[in-house]
Design a protein around this nucleic acid. Structure first.
Lengths: 345, 345
DNA sequence: GTTAGCACTCATTAGAGAAGAGTGCTAACA
DNA sequence: TGTTAGCACTCTTCTCTAATGAGTGCTAAC
């Protein structure tokens, strides 16, 4: 069966009405609200066809139609208005993002918050992968007797530090030697590399200064064995917005949903980009099967052309795709811009 | 009216039964489950007395009794078993806290998680006040042409860093001079102090090296004017545990509750300690009136005897006070210990 | 002072009937 | 041949009623 013009108009009407009302849409409603110039009976015939095609369904015999996943998919791909940002939202974003912010963590947290506010959906932002960044340099600073501050500079401009025990009898000069050995060997390598092999090279390099080696290895191991805590940290915003959706009137559903939100690994799965551009995952297309009634709009943001994290929103399949897509798209660009600029601060 | 021994036993039975079943407790139930040696009729008479005293109430005429706030209060103050930790929980805590953890943030996040797990309630931990910590030292490290890494060491052992623009024509020696001026003047002062007055002293100190002053002031201002973002950060754990309580079968209640959890300021209010020791706030005693059906167990943790943050759990008034109090108490001590030890690492 | 017995209250549950929304089908119409 | 009006039918939702059951308060007996 083909989707002729009239069917398209009717499907479009069904999706749009259902998005705003969350009620099954009947033939009479369409005939009255949308000026299609055809009678309810005709609409009924067309709807029966589209039901056969798997685009819409009836919750029960005497109810109107609601879109199925395939119906939303067709709507998003073929029927929807071009996603475009309204000027108020744009103004809000620009106002919020011009604030100068020091911490990269905060930039991302703010992005998440803003996105959920504007969409009234739940936002997900995944921060840059920590292990991917490469080393640039390492320094030691004096702290207290027996301790030093180890400062690690990465090539992406992130600086980390840690107080380390060095033992009373290690001098500043010795520390400098360790730092030098370190700097010569690992510049440009990622943490993963270091942990998986380079450690040994540094080790053999350092055997020439026998007295330092034990300390050095201990220090390096301590730092690299640090659990990969916040690599790919997940920021969720507006999880509560979900509770305003009539889809989640039931506490059990709410619990199941929030449970998934609490597991970072699950949330990460949702944002795996399917395309290079804006990706839209509808209902059952989701990898996480518990979210078969939710849709995800996602995109990746970049630094210097490299995809380093993801950003997206999640909501019921019955969401305003056009608005959500416009906002995710714009926020992705904004975030890319912000992070690229940040590097130069 | 007086609370004689028999009334106490009955109230104790009501509270304990209600805590486990969440159902109103009838006179027959008490007579059967608890071996008090008196008939339901007698229990009914006593219950009528206690209802008059405002300790218990009936949800409706033909229901059993449930404790009122005052009833819980009396139970906690006079009737409850001494809060004592069971050995399994203790073992779990000890196992979890012996892991070596680098970031103070993470120590606190873990504490929060652990506490919610063991109590099946929602945990709240408030991190140390950032502005209160005093300066110890400042360093500059080379980074890229025109930029340097500024490392700030606080007296509580926290180290922060930031990449700063210094202009192409500032040498390493000049930076060192700035650092020295800085170190001589502000050691032992808090960020607030610096912002509110010391800046000028440093300024006049530095006038002797006229060429450096502009840079110095700029750098300092930039760092200190940074918004006080994460001062008193709030960590919530197991907010979902609340949804398992029959008290929150209703989505509206869930939303109201989670809404409060999302506002850090509200959550902070809950933990304002009322006593120096473990504080128990029951139902309507809460400042946040939306939580009139919840109780909060809270305590403050310390570094070197100074109260620097709070820790607690929140749950329905119908909670296992004894267990919750034992756990909060023990975790407070554990956290104090962990943080004190950390300073010496 | 304590207890047994009993009438009473009120929430909860199940079932029946009415109302309403929307459909599918058939037959008439252009 | 496509469109429309009319109508019977289905299924949900709401309301009302009756039955059930838990638990009480009161009274009278122990």
């Amino acid at each position: 069966m083909q989707m002729d013009e009239r069917k398209k108009k009717i499907l479009r009407a069904i999706v749009q009405d259902y998005i705003t009302t969350a009620e099954p849409v009947g033939s009479r409603t369409i005939s009255k609200k949308f000026d299609l110039g055809i009678s309810p009976a005709t609409i009924r015939n067309e709807m029966a066809d589209m039901e056969e095609m798997g685009l819409i369904e009836q919750p029960h015999t005497s109810a109107g139609r609601i879109p199925m996943d395939a119906g939303y998919r067709y709507y998003v791909d073929c029927l929807m208005d071009r996603p475009e940002l309204n000027s108020e939202d744009k103004a809000v974003i620009e106002q919020e993002t011009t604030k100068r912010i020091a911490e990269i963590q905060e930039v991302i947290a703010n992005t998440s918050k803003l996105l959920s506010q504007l969409t009234s959906l739940t936002s997900i932002v995944i921060s840059p992968h920590r292990e991917k960044s490469s080393f640039s340099k390492m320094h030691f600073l004096p702290y207290q007797p027996g301790q030093a501050i180890m400062v690690i500079v990465k090539e992406n401009g992130v600086v980390e530090n840690q107080i380390v025990d060095i033992g009373e009898n290690v001098s500043a000069e010795e520390l400098q030697k360790i730092a030098n050995a370190f700097n010569q060997n690992i510049k440009g390598h990622s943490m993963v590399d270091v942990r998986h092999g380079l450690l040994h090279e540094i080790y053999s390099e350092l055997t020439r200064q026998r007295s330092l080696i034990d300390h050095a290895i201990d220090l390096l191991s301590a730092v690299f064995e640090e659990p990969q805590e916040d690599k790919n940290k997940v920021y969720l915003g507006g999880a509560l917005n979900m509770l305003n959706q009539p889809e989640f009137r039931d506490v059990d559903k709410v619990r199941n949903l929030l449970q998934i939100f609490e597991e970072d690994e699950q949330v990460k799965k949702l944002l795996i980009p399917t395309t290079d551009r804006l990706s839209v995952t509808i209902g059952g297309e989701n990898i996480v099967k518990e979210l078969k009634d939710c849709s995800v709009i996602a995109a990746t943001y970049q630094i210097d052309g490299e995809h380093i994290g993801s950003i997206g929103v999640i909501g019921p399949t019955r969401m305003d795709y056009s608005k959500a897509m416009a906002l995710v798209d714009f926020m992705t660009k904004t975030l890319t811009e912000l992070l690229t600029k940040r590097r130069k601060i």
